[in-house]
Amino acid sequence: MKPINQAQVTFMSKSVNESFARGIVAVFLAQADPTLPQLADLKTAVSEAVTNCIVHAYPGALGKVTLKLALYEEGLVKITVSDKGRGIPDVKQAMEPLFTTGNPEERSGLGFSVMQSFMDGVKVTSRPGRGTRVVLTKRLTPRQ
């Protein structure tokens, strides 16, 4: 399946770029005319994925995060967030609600649950020491 349009941006794993990534999503998807709740869902899921890269992929270090956006026929949106960080040894465990290796005082462990709840599809592939890729998909159903 060929995208109607796609874009890719790579940025440093600095927390200030979490809002940058959300902004990119909003600007790119404006052409698909999403509803405000749809756009909020997409921005939230991307915010979670990018935060994971910053907190978990490159702990205490800086690396590159790549955000790839693609728009297909019939309002299908595919967003890929990838890093070349330390990877996830057990993806199934990492995706369990409330599981976190972050500071349990301040991290809720809900990142993947939010992505799964707010998107139609979430696919995670990871290789320890090589990096992680999260593919988020959502179909923008037409406005009522």
Binding site: R22, A40, K43, T44, S47, E48, T51, E105, E106, R107, S108, L110, G111, S113, V114
Partner: peptide, 16 residues
Amino acid sequence: SFMDSSGIGLILGRAR
């Protein structure tokens, strides 16, 4: 205007 799960962490931390 926007909140991701970091806001939940903020709430739970303050609740503690």
